[in-house]
Design a protein around this nucleic acid. Structure first.
Length: 289
DNA sequence: CACTTGACCTGTCCGC
DNA sequence: TGCGGACAGGTCAAGT
């Protein structure tokens, strides 16, 4: 469930700590999580230092001094947790995790020269780490299919509308979840932005008016930015780079609020299915087409 | 070709 | 208490 704001929060945490640090060794407990031959890992990762931590859509990009980059996709239950060399010191930011890591969801451990560790945990084993030459990232299988970033910098309303109108027959919820139209939106922020724009998830993109597009554009950008400010959502498996939960869900207007009153009109929020996903709407504010 | 659905996983929760 | 089954959701392969 890590979506753009959660991945961005992890990125911010890692970018405060990793640059300059050198990888000493890599322990792999689940081969599919980091499917790179040992020889390549030794040459391209071990001994390399971290140059920069970036993000594209929901993917973390860790540039190494070898001119190769690690791509990390957290999928639903992935975590990247940094534990400093002073992990047993009082007041360590992830005190509570110290005794728990590694745990049974730990798939890969990056051990750094200074004694710190980066844990890649993933309960459901959907996440992956890839190693790609930095200069070849634009052609990388996953990255090359991603649509534009919605924020940083903000996508213009015109580009936003044009992107979605390329898929005119798609339903709004399915379109928002499509990473090739606009990258980074998942189930939480699809529901939240549709509620903000007062649009029904089953409404086809062609049926949206200019005002609808303006509302959806603003609704999505606002909710993504608010969530980043709050450190991401507080889904049960999501934690930031320090192993700490976010607080966004206390600000969610519809997600996981079924049975509770709509903040606009008081009608009970309902949960249905759209695009194969649990979908939360206000049946009064978001009228079916 | 455009779009929808099911599989991939595992832990959790619910009803019996 | 234990057990089966539904459910969670990002992405891709398979299906319509």
């Amino acid at each position: 469930m890590p979506e753009l704001p959660e991945v961005e929060t992890v990125r911010l945490g890692l970018s405060r700590r990793l640059p300059g640090k050198v990888i000493r060794s890599i322990d792999i407990f689940h081969g599919k999580a980091f499917d790179v031959p040992e020889e390549a890992r030794k040459v391209l990762c071990v001994g390399a230092s971290v140059v920069e931590v970036r993000r594209r859509g929901k993917v973390l990009i860790v540039d190494l001094s070898t001119e190769y980059s690690l791509l990390i996709h957290l999928k639903m239950t992935g975590q990247v947790v940094f534990v400093g060399e002073d992990r047993f010191a009082a007041g360590h930011p992830n005190d509570s995790l110290v005794s728990k890591l590694p745990d049974n969801s730990t798939r890969v451990i990056f051990k750094l020269e200074d004694g710190s560790h980066v844990y890649f945990n993933d309960q459901r084993k959907f996440g992956w780490i890839r190693l790609v030459k930095t200069s070849e990232l634009p052609e990388e299988e996953f990255l090359k299919r991603l649509g534009p970033e919605p924020i940083n910098p903000d996508i213009s309303l015109k580009d936003f509308k044009n992107a979605y109108l390329k898929r005119p027959n798609m339903k709004a919820k399915a379109a928002l979840l499509s990473q090739d139209i606009v990258a980074g939106v998942g189930n939480i922020y699809a529901d939240e932005s549709l509620w903000a724009a007062k649009l029904h998830p089953e409404q086809k993109m062609t049926s949206l008016t200019d005002v609808d597009f303006a509302n959806l554009h603003k609704g999505l950008l606002d909710v993504l930015k608010l969530s980043i400010e709050r450190g991401g959502s507080s889904n049960h498996t999501y934690v930031n780079a320090d192993g700490v939960k976010g607080s966004f869900s206390s600000f969610a207007k519809v997600f996981r609020r079924e049975g509770q009153p709509c903040f606009t009109c008081g009608t009970e929020i309902i949960k249905t299915r759209s695009a194969g996903r649990g979908t939360h709407t206000c049946p009064t504010c978001q009228v079916a087409p």
